[in-house]
Nucleic acid binder design. Sequence first.
DNA 1: TTAGATAGCGCG
DNA 2: AAAGCGCGCTATCTAA
Length: 318
Amino acid sequence: MKLRDAHPIIADILLYRELQKLLSTYIDNLPHLIGEDGRLHTTLNQAGTTTGRMSSTNPNLQNIPVRGEMGTEIRDAFVAPQGSTLLALDYSQIEMRVLAALSEDEHLIEIFRTGVDVHTSVASRVFKVAEKDVTSEMRRKAKVINFGIVYGMGVNALKDNLGSTRAEAQEFYDNYFLTFPKIAAYFEEVKSHAKKDGFTTTYFGRRRFFAGLKSPIPYIRAGAERMAMNAPLQGTAADIIKIAMQKAHEGLAEAKLLDKAHLLLQIHDELLFEVEEGSVKKAREVIEYAMEHAIDFPVPVTVSVFQGPRWGSMEDVK
DNA sequence: TTAGATAGCGCG
DNA sequence: AAAGCGCGCTATCTAA
């Protein structure tokens, strides 16, 4: 039994916390930080993280709410000026694609090369049913493990996230690695290499060093191993989008669009631009191409594109 | 009174 | 003691 079900007040407490968080962190504060130019300016730290990602401070614009109705309302307060529109382009399942590339797992590579839905396809393979027979429940479970695998999630966390029994989670976990054997081998390789040399590398060779991989204390060692497993994936994704940002700039310069399209923000796997209305189509083509062709990679990288005057309610651009 | 640590939660 | 990676901000508690 979950604590949430133990007493009716739990739901009220959680709702209160959610509203209080949004009120204190965003609604009450952000308006005061608007500058004389009518804009909110963040500071991006290029070397602010262990993995190679950027971070954003004062205010942090990489954690503006997006989920739920209230997320939409808060984002809708971010608007493009008259005559311009917001254009957002985000990588699809970038870390899973990086995992496919680094592990060289033929099955995962195949999934991304054929362009099928990754969660459905993984479910189909792990549960050994045809893709058309994948139920929504099977897809949900595959989605949970696909996300978790990137973080070095173990059986215990998998069980909690699936809401299943320990035995069920164990079977699912085992079947996953039997289905994608190179992924299991890849993680073992990363761990042993990190333990021997003290660092991991991204696809492009950037290193992250670790302490704790040789610790005699099991939970310290296990924690370091999860960090080591995740670092090349998150780190390579971070490398990719930084390269893409440069290529997008070059592309826009080449197309004489630098005064029409302005990069506002990078949110780890997503770029947000402000674009003059007459230049949206061309800018979108240039940026999308730059992002999708930023690197030579054994699996395709694809982006989804969204457009609209308000950040909270942008529409899919086909 | 203030600086530092912790709990909790927003995002990818 | 902890069992899922990477961040930053607010509220609260603790120590000086």
